[in-house]
Simulated scan of single mutants.
Amino acid sequence: MEKEEKIVVILLAMVFLSLSIAYVSFFNDGSSDAAEFSAFSETGERVYVQGDIVSKRFTNTGNHLLMTVNSGSGPVKVFVPSANGAKDIGVMVNEDDVVRVTGNLEEYQGEPEIVVQHKNDVVLVRAA
């Protein structure tokens, strides 16, 4: 193989790698790796739920956002830490809005709870 051919092959490989990284960075919405929340979901699993916001309030300490989302199969508790965009999400959504929430399934006081990792993990589907 000639020197010029080797350079072209290396450049093509670099272009392919760059395009692959750009695709993963810009076109992955983060929810594709999440499973729909169900009674069979396990603690630590990345899950999503879509439904109406039944209640929304901020904690007295820490300014964390607590929501309850009715997914159709029952209410699901959602916890948004203040460091993960609680204030921005609190402004964006209201009770009776339909949202899609993605996060890690945790357990709090014996109840399952979806913990939001980033403010983009809460998407307003339809305003009330």
Rank of each mutant, 00 (worst) to 15 (best):
A35S: 15
V54A: 07
V49W: 00
V123L: 07
R46I: 10
R46Y: 10
V9Q: 05
E2I: 06
I89E: 01
G110K: 09
V47C: 10
E113D: 08
V93L: 02
V8W: 09
A13L: 15
N28Y: 14
G103P: 03
T59A: 03
N94S: 13
D121I: 07
A128I: 08
S20A: 13
E95A: 10
A83Q: 04
G74D: 06
H118C: 06
L66A: 01
A34E: 06
V9P: 05
N94C: 06
N94F: 10
N70F: 03
Y108R: 11
I7Q: 14
V54W: 01
N94P: 03
A13W: 04
F16C: 07
E42R: 15
I21K: 05
L12P: 00
S31G: 13
F27L: 15
I89L: 00
V49P: 02
S82L: 02
V123W: 03
A34V: 08
E36A: 14
I53H: 04
H64T: 06
G51T: 05
T61Q: 12
T102L: 01
P81N: 05
K3A: 11
E4L: 09
T102H: 02
V123T: 05
A86N: 01
S18P: 02
P75R: 06
V98H: 09
E36K: 10
K87W: 03
E95V: 15
S38R: 12
I7P: 06
V49L: 12
V122W: 00
D33W: 10
K56P: 00
G44F: 12
D33K: 13
D97W: 05
Y23E: 13
S32T: 14
N28C: 13
L124H: 08
E111L: 15
V47N: 06
I10C: 01
V93R: 04
V98C: 09
T68Q: 00
R126A: 14
S25Y: 03
F37K: 01
I7K: 12
V69P: 02
D29P: 15
N63K: 07
F58L: 05
D121Q: 14
V122N: 00
S32C: 11
G30I: 13
L124W: 02
K77S: 15
D29V: 13
N84Q: 09
E45T: 11
E106N: 13
N60M: 09
